[in-house]
Amino acid sequence: MPGLSIADVSKTFTVDGKPFVALEGATLNLAPGEFGALIGPSGCGKSTLLRMVADLVAPSSGTITLDDAPPRTARLRHDIGFVFQEATLLPWRSVLDNIRLPLEMLGTQGKRGALTPAELVQLVGLNGFEHARPSQLSGGMQQRCAIARALAVAPRILLLDEPFGALDEITRYRMNFELLRIWSQTGTTALMVTHSIDEAVLMADRIFVLAARPGRIVDVVEVDLPRPRRFEHIETPAFSVLTDRVRRSLFSDIEQRFEHAA
């Protein structure tokens, strides 16, 4: 099936000689162009899941497909864009040259980006900073550059690992709306790991709530807020209902524990 499909994926690491289940039986689907969010406490395996989609880590069992192809094929086809928590820019390259970097990995034939690096600079709002070094940019601007870089080869899926986790809350809201605008203009599928309930509800079409020990998906929340999302949406009752629902799912295991104790 087109889009992202994760079927019964588990991952077991060995820590100090003992097996540690990072993720158990995760199943999720994202249609092309959809925005998914992974939210959960530390150690619930949400980053591991994202890294498995990017073929940085291999699953212990289960299958992941991107447009019916395994992650390795998708990666080698340059179909994956990845944004890390830190911008991870090359400090000796200018903004433009950093954005151009993934294009240099393409062979002489094959795919080309939908937007040129210069257009991407416009898209992420870094005009005037094309020739600046990453060290001259603020954290938010560095992350814009990283997003532009991830989009340079027009990936079929954009994976974001807490992309705004290192930013202050004001910059973070701004970047959320920026990313939504960029995502809607490129039409790519997106999967984002986040720690913020607000961010998940604001951005995603579907939120996958994970729990830890063992890491697993405990709830899927469909976000039916209209698009394009606006700042006013945050203040609507529908938004509050959704955040409450996600919060309840996040803390469901705690309630259960209390009930068992009682």
Binding site: D55, L56, H78, F84, M105
Partner: peptide, 8 residues
């Protein structure tokens, strides 16, 4: 990892 994702 970035270079791995970019299939360098």
């Amino acid at each position: 990892e970035l270079f791995t994702v970019m299939a360098a």
